[in-house]
Design a protein around this nucleic acid. Structure first.
Length: 287
DNA sequence: CCAAGGCCTGAATG
DNA sequence: ACATTCAGGCCTT
């Protein structure tokens, strides 16, 4: 009974620091006792308990407090590796981000690293976003689709995004022209959603899974980047045999199927715990 | 369907 | 110092 209570408390508590420093978000910084972050057209302020105040006084459930964390963790705890990761980072949450910002963020992320992604996104916000003042600090909201869609390639490129410049413009255009409706995709099934956003240039399997997991309510999405592949090879070589170096489209699909079969419908959470654990093991830097 | 090469960029490595 | 490699991939051939 004591242990049960302890676990319930442990897993319903949010670890803000770990959640923000887990590769999901980039436009966040700590100041005194609060974390501040740009989320779409809003700026959030979060205290150490995960209590949110915001520029627009919105009531976003950014830390997904309404998720039943205990049952999710029970559901994904299928082997000793995840169990360890969960034990090590209790309170690590999937963040519910602004979809457009999330989309652009992960288009920018491809073949890059956290520090550079962060500066690129900061540059984009400074150039194309609205400046606001919140608690005596200056912030730039994330650019609206229209701004990026109408920007020139060179203006976008000047933000340091490299060859991704045209992807960003085209992605923004597709949102603006409503070829893709991100809000609608929240209600769709995983496959349909994935098929849709993969038509956006710069969005492949991995980026699509990030966008779906972090902003489109697809908790079975399991982004397979270099790290996750390494993790699977290291801890799960007997469960998912990865016989090739490069993961092709088809292999990604079949691998994802095996993963969901193993971890269940909340596989995305397991990915986040494993990713956090391994990057900490290698002392990789976050924000 | 698969394999290989190219791609912006800046920090890290040798 | 200076060159090369690498980093949360994707697209084209």
């Amino acid at each position: 009974m004591k242990k049960l209570l302890y676990n319930m408390q442990k897993y319903s508590t949010i670890n803000v620091e770990n959640s923000i420093n887990s590769g999901q978000v980039f436009l966040w910084k700590k100041n005194e006792n609060y974390w501040y972050g740009v989320n779409g057209q809003d700026v959030l302020r979060v205290d150490e308990k995960g209590i949110i105040d915001s520029f627009h006084n919105s009531r976003t459930d950014f830390f997904r407090k309404k998720d039943n964390t205990e049952s999710i963790i029970k559901s994904i705890s299928k082997d000793k590796t995840v169990k360890n990761a969960v034990k090590k980072y209790p309170g690590l949450r999937i963040l519910r981000q602004d979809p457009f910002q999330c989309l652009i963020s992960f288009i920018v992320s491809s073949n890059s690293n956290i520090q550079k992604i962060k500066t690129s996104l900061e540059n984009l916000s400074k150039k194309f976003g609205t400046k606001v003042e919140y608690e005596n600090q200056e912030f730039f909201l994330f650019p609206k689709p229209e701004k990026l869609a109408k920007a020139s390639i060179n203006e976008i490129k000047s933000c340091g995004v490299g060859y991704r410049d045209k992807f960003i413009k085209e992605a923004a255009r597709m949102i603006l022209l409503e070829k893709i409706d991100l809000e609608l995709l929240k209600k769709c099934k995983y496959e349909e959603c994935k098929q849709s956003i993969c038509t956006i240039p710069g969005v492949g399997n991995k980026v699509a899974d990030c966008v779906m997991l972090f902003s489109l309510e697809k908790l079975e999405a399991f982004p397979l980047d270099r790290w996750m592949i390494r993790i699977l090879e290291k801890y799960y070589f007997d469960k998912f045999q990865l016989d090739t170096k490069t993961v092709t489209e088809k292999q990604y699909d079949t691998l994802h199927e095996k993963i969901v079969n193993h971890f269940g419908p909340f596989a995305g959470y397991s990915q986040q715990f494993l990713f956090k654990m391994e990057r900490e093991n290698y002392q990789k830097k976050w924000l």
